[in-house]
Amino acid sequence: MTAATLARKRPPAFPASWTSRLAWSGLALYAVYASSLMELTWPRFLKGLENGAKFLDRMFPPNFEADKLELIRDGMLESLQIAVLATFFGVLLSLPMGLAAARNLAPPWLSWGARGLIAVLRSFHPVIVSILFVKAVGFGALAGILALIVSTVGFVSKLFAEVVEEMNPKQVEAVRATGAGFLNVLAMAVFPQVMARFVGLAVYQFDSNLRNSTMVGIVGGGGIGAPLFTAYQRFDYDVVLTILLVIIALILLCELVSGRIRRVFQ
């Protein structure tokens, strides 16, 4: 048999998948169509560059006046407090919630109920949730805290439930076989397997809450968001830049610290 007939008989080593080609070209077509809706014309782009230059020009140098710094410090501290409290209470609630949503631990009625609740909590952006809480409990940090508790429970308990569902059932079965009750099985078979990752989730969520706590102020939920938005609307772009720098510095600092914390709980 010649090499040519051999090659004909064998299927290609890397067969082309028509469905995936179709999907890719569909995606490309969509991208072209949707971009055309964006009204991005050449003049607009040039105008944008010009605006951007003006914008940057007004941003620099950042504004470090004493009264502005004081305002920023108060706002930042409030954002930090919002993040701390939302993480604390949110994580506290997520522990039972996540266990209730885990299908390998909780009876079906409970896990489906918990999953439904989590889906509802997760469906709205924290900023939208804070709009509702601002209406319910008034302007200020409390609305922001409550909004971020909602998103914390939504995120942490969903992922925690997944962690619990991925745990090794044999280890749990062995402890159950000793006659241990449910709580003792939790303490010595479930938690040892999942706690490190739960702490990881909680710490990650603190970072995420800190980012969002700088935003809820835009709709009246307290924190640095309000001064930021005000400065923006007044075209005080130098103050905007200062606030952004402080936010980014704080977030990077917190990421550094949280990395260390996660290692302690390995």
């Binding site: 280890q171 062995a174 000793t178 006659g179 709580l183 003792n184 303490a187 010595m188 397997q193």
Partner: peptide, 25 residues
Amino acid sequence: NLVERLSVIENVLSGRLGYLAPWRA
């Protein structure tokens, strides 16, 4: 089927879990 992330003695002590109050566990 040991609980991998626990120490040896914790695994052995698991044998007493049927007699232990949850807070102690």
